Simulated scan of single mutants.
Amino acid sequence: MIATPKEHAVAAAFERELLTVPFDRIAPLYLVTPQKKSSIKFRQIAASIRDIGIVEPMVIARDPHDPEQYTLLDGHLRFAVLKDLKETDARCLVSTDDEAFTYNKRINRLATIQEHKMILRALSLGVPEARLARALDVNIKTIKEKRRLLDGICDEAAELLKDKQVALSGFQILKKMKPMRQIEAAQLMVAMNKFTINYARSLLAATPETLLVSAATPKQIKGISREQLDLMERESANLEREVRLVEDSYGADHLDLVLARGYISKLMTSDRITRYLSLHHPDYVPAFEKITETEAFAS
């Protein structure tokens, strides 16, 4: 009989059961300042907890010296809200890893389209708009706008922006464009990593009249002549072509740069090579040293 190696047990990242923990046993990593409490995000979390309670439990880790004491890894704003509401305990998820940075570096803010889908889902389940507005700390008009977010946005553009933080006004600007121009504008936003209202307005200003929907207001921008708008349209078209060219070669160029940097770094560790360069090609040495000192390119 052939012996098979023993299977290695996989350590669980969290304890199996949620644990109700008194707040006097939880030590936060930082205190929530009055400035943070005045932020829109804090008010939205507070409104949601007041209306529907805690949706996502806080994450804590046991103190290695005292298992009855805990460190708060994730959920500092929720913790502050609950304390402000005079709560004394909460059900928490107990992590077996006390590395708080692991949680913070993996936070993903809710994208605009994801929030839109969440609202549609809640409405389909019968949640009243007024209750949603209270939970998100916004007025009902905003809920209606978010519900209609993708009306007039083509599927391809929506797919490009599905995980991006784009303001409601940004989508309203895109709706003034025809589908092909919406896709081009979304591609430029993603390529330039710019999702601001002003950038969306500049793309609209650089859009030819033929690519605007018939209901769109004619472009009248104070201080910009028709000739300047025509120039912006041409420059926008050139930029789109250049962005696509860069996208086509970016992967290969990035790999070449990483390999070249690694090769030069290896060369510069050799005393014989550095002496030879210093004697015969002294101009190369500072440039090579600068390359080896540069942080590795982000992957």
Rank of each mutant, 00 (worst) to 15 (best):
R109H: 11
R16E: 11
C92T: 12
A100F: 01
L231M: 08
S38E: 15
T102V: 12
M118F: 14
Q220W: 00
R78E: 10
A11K: 14
D230M: 13
S236K: 14
E145G: 14
L132N: 08
S265L: 06
I183W: 06
A185C: 10
K141V: 08
L267P: 08
P208I: 04
L245S: 10
E156V: 15
P64K: 05
T292M: 02
I26R: 04
S278K: 07
G75K: 03
T71P: 00
S270F: 07
R134C: 02
M180K: 14
L149N: 09
G262K: 12
R234G: 04
V21E: 05
P179I: 10
A200E: 03
L277S: 01
D248C: 03
I45T: 07
E184A: 09
A215P: 00
R106T: 15
A47N: 00
A12W: 04
Q35K: 08
T196E: 07
Y284A: 12
E15I: 05
A135V: 11
K290P: 01
K36E: 11
Y103F: 15
M1F: 04
Y103V: 07
V138H: 05
F79W: 14
G53Q: 04
H254F: 08
K41G: 10
L203I: 04
L120V: 04
E7N: 08
V81S: 02
K117C: 04
S278M: 04
D256P: 01
D51T: 15
T274K: 05
F79S: 07
T196L: 03
L259G: 06
I2H: 12
E129L: 01
S39Y: 00
A130I: 15
F297W: 04
I60Q: 04
P282L: 00
L255H: 11
K178R: 15
M177P: 06
I49Q: 00
T88I: 06
L257F: 07
T142Y: 03
P218S: 12
Q220I: 12
A186R: 00
K105V: 15
T210M: 08
K176P: 01
G152Y: 04
R43A: 13
A135I: 09
E227F: 08
I52E: 03
G223L: 09
T33F: 05
R272Y: 01
Y199I: 05
Q44C: 08
A252D: 01
A122M: 05
A111H: 05
D97H: 10
P22G: 02
D163G: 06
V10K: 08
A252C: 06
H254P: 02
Q69S: 02
R78V: 13
E56H: 14
A130W: 01
F14S: 07
P64D: 12
R201K: 10
H76T: 02
K290M: 05
P22E: 07
R234P: 00
D230W: 06
G152M: 07
L93H: 02
A237T: 09
